[in-house]
Amino acid sequence: MKFRNLIALVITAAFALIILQAFTITPAAGEITLNEFGKADINNRTAQLYLNKSVNTDNKKVIYQESKNLESGSANIVTSVVANYRSFDTLGEITVLFLAAAGIGVVLNLENSKKKKFAADDSSLILNTGIKLLFPLLLLAGTYIFVYGHLSPGGGFQGGAVIATAFLLKMLSDNKFEIKEISITLVESTAGISFVGLGLYGLVTRGSFLENFMATGTVGQLFSAGIIPLIYIAIAFKVGAELTNIVKNLIEA
């Protein structure tokens, strides 16, 4: 082992020891500490308000397929956090994603490179045919994931990633398959603008950015949860387009 690796190991170990200390130390009275594993006290966390679907701290009971016109109509609490309670946060995050994609485009500087395709001409028939069959199924699965994001696990990020994966596979297997830059740009900017537009509409009609302005319906039904599905669809298209763009840039670099 080289000297340099040894130093790195020692420093890392020292760091790890110090961090582990935080988990074993017995807290003094009144001191905020990390919970033991599996003992998280939900009742004392912000999450409780989100679970009750009421940030006014009154403990409402929410019943599946029965409760109507709640503050946030999504059955999936994670979705209601991502796309409703903290959707401004999410807007920032997809902006970061956009910047990363733009950065990749700039760094790879596609004009100057030789436009060499990654996929070889002799990609096997089985792969080619398999992906030809799989491609629409993957698109369908991705669409299902983000459309049902407020009812079941999944949502815009996952759905977008699945769609991007579908395009990745298509690009790898089929040499002639090509996505026009303009279509990616179009999808991405439309999605981004509609996200911001939804937010602005909430700002105008309800007085705060990205506030829900639609009826939330009954918990557990497809057409419920107000603007959450709309936001998730926008996120899905944006994430899908950006990840596809990243992959496309890397392939064509």
Partner: peptide, 16 residues
């Protein structure tokens, strides 16, 4: 990276 981690370790050790 090593410098920054080292600094962090020292700070954490001092705090501890």
């Amino acid at each position: 990276a090593l410098y920054s981690v080292l600094l962090f370790v020292i700070l954490a050790a001092v705090g501890w």
